[in-house]
């Protein structure tokens, strides 16, 4: 896909101040999303996916703060926008689907009122028109009996219905970009398939772009054009979806793909050890201590991005050009 990026994230860094000092949750993260493109963001629990999403929306609150980098949306620096302008961007230009629906829904208003309010704020519809539009949106996200459900309060809905209401809220203003944080985790696979089909339709019809955070590699394979793999606050590999699944170049990506359930009844293949807590990262590559392919250099400094294929990059010394007197990778090198 050619053309100027819709969103460029350049060396984004987000830090939380904690009792034991500042902790870097997102560490110089860079990526681009082009119009009509879906970028998947995958990675281990706690690696910084949601904080990345919240940073893009400028919704990180104290003790968290963005300490570095730039967010360019259609070439405009979102970081420089006054809050009032940013509020207009949110919803109308970039909408977010939050990971936990109950954090985003107001328990004292019906879902119909919340949808109508969003439509009204952005001048999309009002009064009776808004109610009709709300019902249409609920229908689009496969909520049964939308005419009845429109008057439900969030607590009267099942977990998956709440998640679909959140998707409806994000679609309400027909944004150019949706930042979707695990949007289908609470849905059974038939409804999930329906929602993914709906998103694909919106991509085709309106050129909708998506940043899709998911831990379901099947979902990523089905809808993403490109995939970025995050580990301990950094993007360790990024590339076209086929390359990531067929020719993963970072040992973490390979280990992640190998953790999918295989033979029923048997133990699942977990990656040994656990993600280092932000603030307690090892000196070199953050994945180093758990990596089967590590060698001396991995413990020195964090590896930079290396080009490992067309439009594919990985932060791994296995891919460092063998030169300049630095000890190279051991014999079993890149595969």
């Amino acid at each position: 896909m050619a053309g100027a990026p819709l969103l460029s994230v350049e060396r984004l860094t987000t830090v939380f101040d904690t009792a034991s000092g500042p902790v870097t949750a997102v560490d110089e993260v860079s990526f681009e999303i082009r119009p009509g493109e879906t970028l998947g963001l995958v990675g281990e629990s706690g690696c910084g996916k949601s904080v990345t999403a919240l940073s893009i929306m400028r919704l990180v609150v104290a003790p968290g703060r963005i300490t570095g980098g730039r967010l360019l949306y259609r070439g405009r620096d979102l970081g420089a926008l006054p809050e009032a302008d940013m509020r207009r961007v949110r919803g109308a230009e970039i909408a977010m689907i939050f990971q936990e629906p109950m954090t985003a829904l107001n328990p004292v208003f019906t879902i119909g009122d919340q949808l109508a309010e969003t439509l009204a704020v952005h001048g999309r519809a009002s009064g009776r028109g808004a109610r009709a539009a709300a019902i249409d949106l609920l229908d689009a996200v496969r909520i049964p009996d939308p005419r009845l459900r429109v008057d439900d309060y969030p607590h009267q809905l099942s977990g998956g219905m709440r998640q679909r209401v959140l998707i409806a809220l994000a679609l309400a203003c027909r944004p150019a970009l949706i930042v979707a944080d695990e949007p289908t985790t609470a849905l059974d696979v038939t409804i999930q398939a329906g929602i993914l089909a709906l998103l694909r339709e919106m991509k085709a019809a309106f050129g909708l772009s998506l940043l899709l955070i998911t831990h379901d590699l099947g979902v990523a394979a089905g809808i993403c054009d490109r995939v970025a793999v995050m580990y301990a606050g950094r993007i360790v590999e990024e590339g076209p979806v086929r390359a990531i699944f067929r020719r993963p170049q970072h040992p973490y990506t390979r280990a992640l793909l190998a953790s999918m359930p295989g033979v029923p009844g048997q133990r699942l293949t977990a990656i040994d050890g656990s993600v280092p807590a932000p603030g307690a990262l090892p000196a070199g590559c953050a994945f180093g201590p758990r990596c089967r392919d590590r060698f001396d250099r991995c413990a020195t400094t964090p590896p930079p991005d290396y080009a490992v294929g067309p439009e594919q990059r990985a932060k791994c010394y296995l891919h460092a050009p063998a030169a300049t007197g630095v000890p190279g990778p051991p014999t079993h090198g890149p595969r």
């Binding site: 695990e182 133990r267 977990a270 990656i271």
Partner: peptide, 30 residues
Amino acid sequence: ALDVSVQAQVVNLLMDLQRQLTLTYLFIAH
């Protein structure tokens, strides 16, 4: 809400506990 690798750890833990302590689970999942 867990990625496949942490999910594997937690599921293995549940299966181990079940064997050790004869736990019984109603497992609701998508």
